[in-house]
Structures are given as C-alpha cells and as structure tokens.
C-alpha cells in the first residue's frame, strides 16, 4: 500500500482547491502577467487530474517565485536559479508526484542557466514554466537575459550591449522534448499548453510571456499574438526538429520587432524520460524510492553483508 494516498486518487478536483485560504490574494502589481500563469495553472491541474496533495511546485526567487504562496499544493520556494535541481531530484525520489518548476527569465536563463541546459538535456519528466517579462521585476527593473539589445536600466544606463538570449532555441538545442511559448494575455492557449506539458512524459519547457506593467512599461503587452499551431499562415509540424528550430529563431527575432508568436514549437513523444532511461540501465528502482522509508516490512540491506568481502 502506498504511503502517499493522495497520488492517483480518483476524484473530481475543483480549481478553487488550489487557492490557499491563508493567502488567497496575490501581491503582484495590477495588470501583471503573473496572474495569467496562476489562473491557467489552476485550470490545467484539475484538467489533468492532479490534486494539491500530489503536486509539488518548486520555484525560484523573484515575483514568479511567489507563485508558491498563491497556489495551494506542496511547495518548495527555493533559492535564486535553483528550482530545477531541487525539482528533478524530488521527481527521481518519487516519480509518482506531479512536479512543476517555475521561475523568471533571470532565474532560469541567467543565474540558473546551467541547470536549465542540463535538466533539458537529461529530459526529466517535469514541467518548467519560465515567467518571461524581459526584466528583473522584484529587484526593481534591471536588465535581464531576455531584455532587448539597447535596453536601458539603472544597471545598464547606456543601454544593454548584449543580444538577448534565445530561450526556445536554447531549450531545443539542450535537449528538451517539449518546447512551447504562450502569453498571459492568452489564458485559453496557456491552459491547453500547460495541460499538454504536464501530460508530456519528459522535460516540458514553457516560455510564458508575462507582461510587467511596472518596470517594463516600454514592452508590449504581448498583443496581438499569433498561435502558430492554429494560424493558417504557419503550416508547421511540431515533431519536425528542423522546422521547429527555424520557427523558434523567427519567433525570437520577431518578439523584439513587436510581433508575438506563440504555440507548441516542438514535441518528441517517443523519447524516454530520464527516469525511464535510468530504470532501463538498472540505476533507479521501479517503485518510488520514497515509499521504501514508510514500508515497515522492507529488509534494509547492510554494507556488512553486501560489500565487506572485498576488503578481506
């Protein structure tokens, strides 16, 4: 019997279950795109049948990190840039959990960029939401890795000399098996994409455009947007890596020209997740490791019986 009865429980889940009574109202600025992430997540979770007690939401630091405070589930609000390594280990220790990681563009593409690359490469079965507002919000408006070239801020008074990072291309190249972009202004698409991401068996990365009305007033509100999966202008197959690559590049360029493209860019459904790869080579148990510590009948191995002989 599982020690975690919340997992896999068959029941109807109401989206209001995800609203914590202790902190029902977020402190984000009026008009902030982060509201859109919260709302679509509250819609997508019941849709995929995951309850608050079987969901672990792991966040980084920044306005985005506050998501944990406003979504009632198991939560781990970590440190700046480190949501991914915490999240993926939790998933390895208990693969039956629904693990979602979230953070901002500075958190994920800047300070945590190394983890992003490697988590994508390893294809951990989890969803990663990057709140991309092209700015550092909580520290009051500094230039971020996705800020456009020439972006002026108190830390880049003469305008940024740096070309912005290409989050979608980077994700694909690193090895993510599901890559999408959505925007807070498009809640229906966001909900759909989040649900697909959670159901995807592998690393699903969503670059979520979240407008910042306070510190990034110059930036567009990400409207109008085009859904590349729906638009007749784009005849495109998201399982084709080369096409995805080309379209991602176009999308990244166009964002800075004022045109917002969104949708699922790439998905590779037949690639085994990292957990599966590890199980296949005998480096991970079939049953969740976390269960073992609650199993009173488990016969714990002793080093004395297993490994001592070679020292004789």
């Amino acid at each position: 019997m599982s020690a975690f009865s919340a997992i896999g429980e068959e029941r109807e889940i109401d989206r209001e279950e995800y609203t914590p009574a202790i902190e029902p109202q977020p402190t984000w600025c009026p008009g902030c795109g982060d509201f859109g992430v919260l709302k679509s997540l509250k819609q997508a979770l019941p849709e995929v049948g995951r309850s608050p007690d079987e969901t672990l939401l792991v966040t980084g630091i920044g306005c985005s990190g506050k998501l944990n405070s406003y979504l009632d589930s198991y939560g781990f609000h970590t440190i700046h840039g480190r949501s991914l390594p915490v999240a993926r280990a939790a998933k390895l220790a208990n693969p039956d959990l629904e693990v979602i990681a979230a953070g901002g563009d500075g958190d994920g593409y800047g300070i945590g960029g190394n983890h992003f690359m490697h988590t994508a490469r390893e294809n951990h079965d989890m969803t990663y939401i990057v709140f991309n507002n092209e700015i550092f919000g909580l520290t009051k408006g500094q230039t971020s890795p996705t800020s456009p070239k020439g972006h002026k801020s108190k830390t880049q008074p003469h305008g940024s000399a740096k070309t912005p990072i290409r989050p979608l291309s980077l994700s694909l190249t690193s090895g993510a098996s599901f890559v999408a972009r959505t925007a807070a202004v498009n809640p229906n698409q966001a909900r759909d994409i989040l649900a697909q991401a959670m159901e995807h068996d592998g690393f699903a990365h969503i670059d979520f455009l979240t407008q910042c009305p306070t510190w990034n007033k110059d930036a567009r509100q990400y409207v109008p947007y085009t859904d590349i999966n729906e638009s007749d202008d784009y005849d495109f197959d998201p399982t084709d890596r080369a096409e995805a690559q080309r379209l991602m590049r176009e999308t990244e360029d166009k964002l800075y020209e004022g045109e917002v493209l969104t949708g699922v860019y790439y998905r590779e459904d037949d690639r085994p997740s990292y957990g599966q790869e590890k199980r296949d080579i005998g480096e991970m148990p079939d049953e969740a490791l976390a269960e073992r510590y609650f199993d009173d009948d488990y016969e714990w191995e002793r080093s004395y019986d297993m490994f001592i002989d070679k020292h004789k």
Partner: peptide, 30 residues
C-alpha cells in the same frame, strides 16, 4: 554500490546542483 541497493546516484552539472538535488530528494522523502 547504490544501484545494487535500489538507490540513485546522480552526477550533475555543478556542486550547487549537487547540494540542491540532495535537498530535493530529502524533501521528497529519501
């Protein structure tokens, strides 16, 4: 030795990740 014991070993990208993974696994009950 860990695979033989149904355990998990992870060689990761850096030591920040290494400590963070140990925290994540411990948090999840290992």
């Amino acid at each position: 030795n860990l695979p033989e014991l149904g355990g998990i070993s992870e060689q990761v990208e850096d030591e920040i990740a290494a400590a963070a993974l140990a925290i994540g696994a411990s948090h999840a009950g290992a």
